[in-house]
């Protein structure tokens, strides 16, 4: 099967079985290894990317379902050398330990803030609870997401 997908603004033609996971296409075929494998079962969120603006788990998204969609990965949110507000906030809050979950965390947060730049605590918990940080940096990640929300809204 040949499928066209746009990844980080670049169109790609992918020849693979329709049930191939988007995660595998991104990591192995396109070399975008910032998106991580954590469980392959949509339980940990390490593989989160944006599909047409919405955060999805790429490990359980089949290539056929990604046809003609616009995908954004962690490699695609930095613009002209400027980090996305969420990336910068993760740095400013030191919101990680081993860092393996961070790509997925950031993409889930970007997807949430795209829809609602001012989520309350309850919404953050709901939207982010599909993402596991086994090192337990959750309090800092919460702080980073709130910081990014303020940056995006232009408030201090």
């Amino acid at each position: 099967m040949s499928v066209e997908i746009e990844v980080n603004g670049i169109k790609h033609k992918i020849d693979a079985e329709p049930e191939t996971s988007l995660l595998e296409i991104l990591r192995d075929d396109l070399g975008l290894t910032g998106t991580k494998y954590g469980c392959g079962e949509s339980q940990c969120g390490a593989c989160t990317v944006l599909m047409n603006g919405f955060p999805i788990h790429s490990c359980v998204t089949q290539l056929s379902d990604a046809a003609d969609s616009k995908i954004v990965t962690i490699e695609g949110i930095e613009k002209n050398g400027h980090l996305h507000a969420v990336q910068q906030a993760f740095i400013d809050e030191g919101a990680m330990q081993c860092g393996y979950c961070v790509s997925g965390m950031i993409m889930a947060a970007v997807g949430m803030l795209n829809r609602n730049p001012n989520p309350n605590d309850e919404e953050i918990l709901m939207r982010m609870s599909g993402n596991i940080c086994r090192c337990g940096s959750y309090p800092r990640m919460m702080a980073a997401i709130k910081r990014a929300s303020r940056t995006i809204r232009g408030v201090k």
Binding site: L32, T33, G34, Y37, I74, Q88, G94, G99, S103, I106
Partner: peptide, 17 residues
């Protein structure tokens, strides 16, 4: 700050996998 933190938020850091 964690050394190399920028590479972790941009997905550039290469783990074994």
């Amino acid at each position: 700050q964690k050394v190399g933190i920028r590479d972790f938020v941009t997905g550039k850091h290469e783990y074994t996998s």
